[in-house]
C-alpha cells in the first residue's frame, strides 16, 4: 500500500520545426540555483507548443545529444537557438526530465 515513489525518468521529446519560433523560455544553467535549464514558459503557436509533449517545469538534459550539464545559461540558450536555426535538421530532440 501507499503511493508509488515517483522516479524521475528522462524522456526524449522530438520537436518538429513547424513554426517560426521554438517558443520556450528557459531559466538556469551552471553556477546558478538551477544548474540545468528548466522550461518556464511555453508559448502558444510555437513549435514546442505544437509538439504537445514539452511541459513547463521540465529540465533539459540534452539537446540533439549535446549535454547541457556544466554549461552556463547563455551557452545552453545558444545551443538550443542553434539547434532551432540549423537547416540540417527539421526537428530538435530534447532529453528532458520532470523533477520529482
Amino acid at each position: 500500500t501507499g503511493s508509488p515513489v515517483p522516479v524521475p525518468t528522462a524522456t526524449v521529446v522530438r520537436v518538429v520545426k513547424n513554426a517560426n519560433t521554438l517558443g520556450i523560455a528557459i531559466e538556469g544553467g551552471a553556477n546558478t540555483r538551477q544548474p540545468l535549464p528548466r522550461i518556464v514558459t511555453i508559448q502558444k503557436g510555437g513549435s514546442a507548443h505544437n509538439c504537445g509533449q514539452l511541459k513547463v517545469g521540465q529540465v533539459i538534459l540534452e539537446v540533439n545529444g549535446i549535454s547541457l550539464r556544466g554549461r552556463e545559461h547563455k551557452d545552453a540558450a545558444w545551443i538550443i537557438a542553434e539547434a532551432f536555426k540549423t537547416k540540417e535538421k527539421d526537428h530538435i530532440d530534447f532529453l528532458v526530465v520532470e523533477p520529482g
Binding site: 523560455a25 553556477n31 546558478t32 514558459t41 547563455k74 537557438a81
Partner: peptide
Amino acid sequence: REKRLTLPPSEITLL
C-alpha cells in the same frame, strides 16, 4: 558561523 552556499538566480531567455 554556518557557511551557506548561495547561488545567484538565473536569467530567463526566450527562445
